Computed example of a mutant assay.
Amino acid sequence: MSRIQCPRCLRPHSHCLCPLIPSIDSRTRVLLLQHPSEVNHALNTARLAALGLNNAELIVGEVFEDLPALLNQSGYRARLLFPADDAQPLQAYTETEEPLLLVVPDGTWRKARKMLHLNPLLAGLPRVTLAEGGVSRYRLRKAPGPGALSTVEAIVQALQILEAPVSFEPLLKPFEALIEGQIAAMGEETFQRNHGPR
């Protein structure tokens, strides 16, 4: 028998995160393109980001038929937050008149690359990148490399750069509560054995 879920945050009612989810305005519009395999993931951080940002939209899929309309939103310049040799640092956009439409693929690196491959319009967007050396608070997962962040962490870092001095840290509150809940459920001993310092 499955537990009753909150229809908003998709967590079991007993672990609902909605009271911790902020409601933050941003000049930057965030478009999250989520791979279907992430929807039911216990740590669905893209959903948390979309719920906490008033100027964000979350779309689930692998191929996005309405991508032209999504990317050509009046008053915004679309940029893909994804690494590439020619990706520009987000700091280059802090003084621009026209706000960004920050397009963020959500999935494993392999699945995100597949989404780009299946959506040439997406792959063709100019890319932007975060400053190197970001440290993830995602203590339950081994990062694939230095600077690897969860989706919500990457969005917070991007918005902190683009919209300083506005703070987007409140977006991380439900994320941190989610991690603490997972650690509590597995027990400190199991957490230390599997995720503690080596």
Rank of each mutant, 00 (worst) to 15 (best):
Q88M: 11
E65H: 11
S136K: 10
Q73Y: 02
R77W: 06
L67V: 00
L70F: 08
A78K: 02
N54G: 14
D106G: 08
L100V: 00
E98T: 15
N72R: 04
D25A: 15
A112M: 09
T129D: 09
E95C: 14
N55H: 13
P83I: 12
L100E: 03
G107P: 00
L116F: 13
L51G: 11
G75E: 07
Q91C: 00
P105S: 05
Q73V: 15
E95K: 15
R29A: 11
V103H: 09
P83M: 06
V30Y: 10
R77E: 12
L17E: 04
T45Y: 03
R137D: 03
G75Q: 05
N40G: 15
E97T: 14
T45V: 02
L53S: 10
G107Y: 01
Q91P: 00
P105K: 00
Q34F: 03
A42M: 08
V39W: 05
L116C: 13
G134E: 07
D25C: 14
V39A: 13
R110F: 10
A92M: 12
P89K: 00
L58H: 10
L118P: 09
N40A: 11
E95I: 12
V60L: 05
S23F: 04
V103P: 12
A87W: 13
T108I: 04
R79A: 15
P19V: 12
L70S: 04
R77M: 11
R127E: 02
L51M: 10
N40L: 06
L20A: 12
L58C: 07
L118R: 13
V63H: 12
E38D: 03
G61K: 00
D25K: 15
L17S: 10
L102K: 14
W109R: 10
P19C: 12
I24Q: 15
V103I: 05
P105E: 00
Q88P: 04
T96Y: 07
R79M: 13
L32N: 06
E97F: 08
I24S: 07
F82H: 13
P120H: 00
E98M: 11
M115R: 01
Q88S: 15
P105Y: 00
A112R: 03
T108N: 06
Y138C: 02
Q88V: 11
D85I: 07
L125S: 06
P19L: 12
Q88C: 13
R79E: 10
P83G: 06
T45R: 04
